[in-house]
């Protein structure tokens, strides 16, 4: 399992994570909505999403 954490104070709703990992992140309004615990097979997508976040609000554990 990979654990996702989004810092709601940092998230500005840029939505870049939704493009990198659509199975995890959904943007309706800031802060983004997401699945907190995802299968290990989605770890790469989650890390790409964390890399792509302009305000670096995403942590993957």
């Amino acid at each position: 399992m990979a654990r996702i954490l989004v810092d709601a104070d940092k998230c500005q709703g840029y939505g870049q994570c939704c493009y990198e990992a659509p199975a995890i992140f959904t943007l309706i309004d800031a802060p983004v909505t997401y699945v907190a615990d995802v299968d290990e097979s989605l770890r790469d997508d989650a890390e790409r999403a964390a890399d792509a976040c302009p305000v670096q609000a995403i942590t993957v554990e």
Binding site: G13, Y14, G15, C18, L27, I28, D29
Partner: peptide, 9 residues
Amino acid sequence: RTSDLTGYR
């Protein structure tokens, strides 16, 4: 209009 650009991408 950030959340409306998905299709364009």
